[in-house]
Amino acid sequence: MSFWSSQTLKSHLPSLIEPFNAEQIQSASYELCLGEEIYISALPDTPLKERKKITLREKETVAIPPGQFAFLITSEIIKVPNNALAFISIKFKFKSNGLINVSGFHVDPGYSGKLIFAVYNAGPLNFHVARGERVFSIWYADLDKDDENPRNKIGYDSIPTDLMNSPDLVSSLPYLVKRLDDLEKKIENFSFKQAIIFSIVIAVLVTFVKPIIENVSRNFLGSF
């Protein structure tokens, strides 16, 4: 397997990437831009009507909150020949600020469509991305021959709803934090209620049982 050089990318990619821009070839890779759609996993207090894909205008930005997952789609349509394999990643300047790719790292031979990246904001701050920004990188490599089982399924042209159902509250770090906070409050409330009940029991014992015990003790001692 040999990776395509910048020269090879310049000669091959015009027919494999749409739209193609020669200026996006950098160090034997091609830089891909963020497309018009993004889906961010919902925060615990997000209304149901707002739990949907976000459509971005050109150069519009959106923030991925800390601890949240998101699906990002490329603006380019990608094709991979049957005799090649592609590798994908998020550019280092984004990874170094906490944005992690948690999806696959390669594109199958025969694939045709936009690419979807599942990402996670592992940083402490909101992570802003903009439509049209060069966020991803793709590398092409030759196979020794045409693959006999290339991908035949139609590629993505938008973020599908079945993917949107995956990274919801169950996988949201803020949601887990909220659950822990709620659990702590329940324990505190339970402890407070237990303390009140204990105080009431002691008060009842002091008020009603103590005189009985004292009376029994006096009668018992008076019998001697």
Rank of each mutant, 00 (worst) to 15 (best):
N97R: 13
E60H: 10
I78T: 09
I54S: 14
H106E: 13
F87S: 15
K95P: 09
E37D: 06
P44R: 03
E37M: 08
S41P: 07
S27E: 14
F92C: 11
L16Q: 05
Q7Y: 11
N101W: 12
E60M: 14
K95M: 14
I73R: 10
T46W: 05
Y39F: 13
S96I: 10
K10V: 02
Y30Q: 00
A70Y: 10
P65V: 15
I40N: 05
K59N: 12
K114F: 03
K114S: 08
E37H: 10
G35L: 01
R57W: 07
I77Y: 11
K95Y: 13
S29M: 09
Q68P: 01
S112C: 05
I78C: 00
P65G: 04
S103G: 15
S11M: 05
A70Q: 04
A42K: 14
I90G: 08
R51A: 03
D108R: 05
T55R: 13
Y30T: 02
V80G: 01
A70C: 09
S29V: 00
P44S: 05
F87G: 03
G67V: 13
S96N: 15
S29E: 05
I54G: 00
G113Q: 14
Y39K: 04
I54C: 11
F94N: 02
K59C: 03
A84E: 11
G104Y: 11
N97S: 15
H12K: 09
Q26M: 03
T74I: 04
I64R: 07
S11C: 00
T55K: 12
K10R: 15
F69H: 08
G104T: 09
G110C: 09
K95G: 09
L16T: 02
A22M: 05
Y111V: 10
V102M: 11
I38D: 08
L13F: 14
I73N: 09
L56E: 03
I40L: 04
K53A: 10
Y111K: 09
S27F: 14
H106W: 13
N21A: 05
S15L: 02
E50T: 02
E58L: 04
L85C: 01
L85I: 10
L56V: 09
I38E: 13
S27I: 05
L48Y: 14
N82A: 00
G113I: 12
K53I: 12
F71N: 01
A22N: 02
S29W: 08
P44I: 03
G35C: 10
K10F: 00
K91Q: 12
F92S: 13
G104S: 09
T61D: 11
I116A: 07
N21Q: 07
I116F: 15
Y39E: 04
K49M: 12
Y30A: 03
P44C: 00
L16C: 01
E18W: 11
T8V: 14
Y111I: 09
L99S: 00
Q68I: 13
